[in-house]
Computed example of a mutant assay.
Amino acid sequence: MSDARPVHTQALVLFSGGQDSATCLAWALSRYERVETIGFDYGQRHKVELTCRGRFLEALKQRYPQWARKIGDDHLLDLALLGQISDTALTQDKAIAFASTGLPNTFVPARNLVFLTLAAAIAYRRGLTVLVGGMCETDYSGYPDCRDDTLKALQVALSLGMDSRFLLDTPLMWLSKAQTWHLAESLGGRPLVELIREETHTCYAGDRQTRHAWGYGCGSCPACELRRKGHDTYLEAPAP
């Protein structure tokens, strides 16, 4: 009996320009036949990440020709409305702190839900059946829209709502930040680690002036702290 289920060979990667999504892009390129990318301009304070994503993509194509031929179109969506309705430290000029909910005020409500819904709409039109995101429930800030249960539910909702079987791949879901660095090395060697260190951006403050061993950033925001600790552990412990 033949298997009539669709074969997932083409993916759309949510690529912000940060460490996690850059690693996911390399992971997708090692796994799928064609890979497109999508980014979002939502009024984020660290808008410099959008510049970084273009530089990273070009450098990736030049240094990894085996991946370059798989890379398709890049999509950048204007989501200024999301920033306008979000009163957060990620979209407004305010100090980063913890809210009464226990979440940092960098949490942009529904951000990943909106991102993935719009990505699915693009993927539907482009004939792509896999959405790849760098959401993680291990070393993360506690955002509820990064949790595995949320994304599993959204996969079902998107597939039902568009009558098309989507697969949400989250390769970093159960990895620590150190393991994410190790994953990058396993995919593209130390040159990929160096490319991620130099050309990606994670810092919520948008600092591209201060260079650390792990990359650029203010060094004190939650994103910088996670990246620094993960990089330190990566250097201290060999890959399992």
Rank of each mutant, 00 (worst) to 15 (best):
residue 1 M to S: 13
residue 4 A to W: 13
residue 7 V to L: 02
residue 10 Q to D: 11
residue 11 A to W: 08
residue 18 G to Q: 10
residue 18 G to W: 05
residue 19 Q to F: 07
residue 23 T to G: 06
residue 26 A to T: 06
residue 27 W to T: 02
residue 28 A to E: 15
residue 28 A to L: 14
residue 38 I to R: 09
residue 39 G to R: 09
residue 40 F to A: 05
residue 41 D to N: 10
residue 42 Y to G: 11
residue 43 G to T: 05
residue 45 R to P: 11
residue 46 H to G: 05
residue 48 V to S: 03
residue 53 R to N: 07
residue 54 G to L: 14
residue 54 G to P: 07
residue 59 A to L: 03
residue 60 L to G: 00
residue 63 R to V: 01
residue 65 P to Y: 00
residue 66 Q to K: 00
residue 68 A to K: 04
residue 69 R to H: 01
residue 72 G to P: 12
residue 74 D to N: 15
residue 77 L to A: 05
residue 79 L to P: 02
residue 80 A to W: 06
residue 80 A to D: 02
residue 81 L to K: 11
residue 81 L to M: 07
residue 82 L to G: 01
residue 83 G to M: 10
residue 83 G to S: 04
residue 86 S to Y: 09
residue 87 D to A: 10
residue 88 T to S: 09
residue 88 T to F: 09
residue 90 L to K: 00
residue 91 T to D: 08
residue 91 T to C: 12
residue 97 A to V: 12
residue 98 F to D: 14
residue 100 S to A: 15
residue 101 T to P: 12
residue 102 G to R: 09
residue 103 L to D: 12
residue 104 P to G: 15
residue 105 N to D: 13
residue 110 A to V: 12
residue 112 N to S: 02
residue 113 L to I: 15
residue 115 F to L: 13
residue 118 L to W: 12
residue 121 A to G: 15
residue 124 Y to N: 12
residue 130 V to C: 13
residue 134 G to K: 03
residue 138 T to A: 04
residue 139 D to E: 05
residue 140 Y to V: 01
residue 140 Y to N: 07
residue 141 S to N: 03
residue 142 G to P: 08
residue 144 P to R: 07
residue 151 L to T: 08
residue 163 D to S: 15
residue 164 S to N: 15
residue 168 L to F: 08
residue 169 D to A: 14
residue 169 D to T: 05
residue 171 P to Q: 04
residue 171 P to C: 06
residue 172 L to V: 11
residue 173 M to G: 10
residue 177 K to Q: 06
residue 181 W to M: 11
residue 182 H to V: 07
residue 182 H to C: 13
residue 183 L to H: 06
residue 185 E to S: 09
residue 189 G to I: 05
residue 192 L to I: 00
residue 192 L to R: 04
residue 198 E to I: 03
residue 200 T to L: 07
residue 211 R to G: 04
residue 213 A to E: 12
residue 219 G to Y: 08
residue 220 S to Y: 14
residue 224 C to A: 05
residue 224 C to R: 02
residue 225 E to H: 11
residue 226 L to D: 00
residue 229 K to V: 11
residue 229 K to W: 14
residue 239 A to W: 11
